[in-house]
Design a protein around this nucleic acid. Structure first.
Length: 271
DNA sequence: AAACAAACCTGTGCGC
DNA sequence: TGCGCACAGGTTTGTT
């Protein structure tokens, strides 16, 4: 593939030149994920890492399509080669397309790194906690992380070093599903409640993924094809501050700030 | 150890 | 219509 890089800020760990050199004439062999880190192994032995942070998007588009504002990286994917073993085209074949990294707030980033030496450019990758979707994730994982800390649940769920992949929307939805207050200390949970929390984490994330994610009013989160998700329609507390609780029908959803993040919960059915 | 604030940016929606 | 302000999906860093 050939590569263009606009704003250098999105490759701040290295440089525009290093990103272009690392991607040019390579083949993306897979698309993987650890927590919120998107990983693309390359046939060069290196891998690309993309993090969307708050406002990033990865989009696939026809060659030459009009690029939206804040398109910072463009990868020109090669057509599936006639020399490939069986010139099979799949429904998700994106050969010949462009892959865009778009990010108005430029909190997101793109970098090419050596997976054998990830600690050099991406030290936080090795420090990510258990991934509830990609890894085996049982109540014992939670007991280890939550059993002996006075930290409260909401910031703990958001801590990527403890559990990787939960963001602000899903932390609130998970705690509501588990009927637990966001400000409850983790070490007050017995094994039964830890088990409910474990199931809530897996169920909320799985349902959200199946629904294509949460696309809020500004339509920032969309999938590779630009399609919106529908999980926002299933939010029971996030974005519902001041409304009657959909679950118990008795409490009013409260919106507070915990750890600098907006947090919504029902004080009646979450304990 | 853990809670908190600030920093990094741009866009949007609101009240006036 | 225009302006200023609050706020937004995340993470790191520094301060109490």
């Amino acid at each position: 593939m050939q590569v263009e890089v606009g704003r250098e800020r999105v490759v701040r760990r290295t440089s525009r030149e290093e990103l272009i050199a690392g991607l040019t004439d390579t083949v993306v062999e897979a698309a993987e994920r650890r927590g919120k880190y998107l990983l693309l192994p390359l046939d060069s032995g290196e891998a690309a890492m993309i993090h969307l942070r708050m406002s990033g998007q990865v989009l696939v588009a026809p060659p030459g399509a009009l690029r939206p504002p804040h398109t910072h990286v463009v990868m020109h994917l090669d057509p599936a080669g006639a020399d490939s073993a069986r010139d099979v085209r799949h429904a998700d074949d994106v050969g010949g397309s462009e892959l865009w990294f778009v990010d108005p707030r430029t909190f997101g980033e793109v970098v090419v790194f050596d997976p054998q030496r990830a600690h050099r450019l991406l030290p936080e990758l090795a420090r990510l906690g258990v991934d509830p979707i990609a890894d085996d994730f049982g109540v014992d994982d939670l007991r280890q992380a939550f059993g002996a800390t006075r930290r409260v649940l909401k910031p703990l769920l958001l801590d990527q070093h403890v559990i990787a992949g939960i963001g602000n929307i899903y932390a609130d939805e998970i705690l509501h599903r588990a009927r637990l207050r966001p400000d409850r200390p983790a070490d007050t949970l017995d094994r039964r409640r830890l088990s409910v929390l474990r199931d809530s984490i897996v169920d909320v994330l799985t349902e959200a993924i199946d629904a294509g994610g949460s696309t809020l009013g500004d339509a920032q989160y969309v999938d590779l094809m630009g399609h919106s998700g529908s999980y926002q329609d299933d939010h029971r507390v996030y974005g519902r501050g001041g409304e009657r609780c959909l679950t118990c029908g008795r409490g009013w959803v409260r919106r507070v700030v915990t750890g600098g993040r907006s947090t919504s919960f029902c004080p009646v059915c979450q304990r």
